[in-house]
Amino acid sequence: MKRAVLAAVFLFVAAFLLLAAAQMRPFGSPASALMDDYFLANAQAEVAANNVVTAVVFDYRGFDTLGEATVLFAAVVGVLAVFRKLREDER
């Protein structure tokens, strides 16, 4: 019984997600690309990068990349903490 209700709710949510995907603007034709066209037009001149994705990752959205490195650092510290050597009285 519980599983049936859960399955029904799950299918309902799934249907909504698919509906949203189907109702988005058509694939391959971005509705508004002001920001991205700016990157494409100015990345070479402003950032001196031939690869625009690099320009976005390391310059225009460099703060996100810092955040990404921070998440990685946090995960490393977390894993180190999980497997650290414990003191005698902590075991």
Partner: peptide
Amino acid sequence: NFFVFLEITSVAACGLIGFRTW
């Protein structure tokens, strides 16, 4: 950027919750 910070808090918070591994 909000999502990135959300993940920073998630990872750091869970590292701290599980910090007393014993």
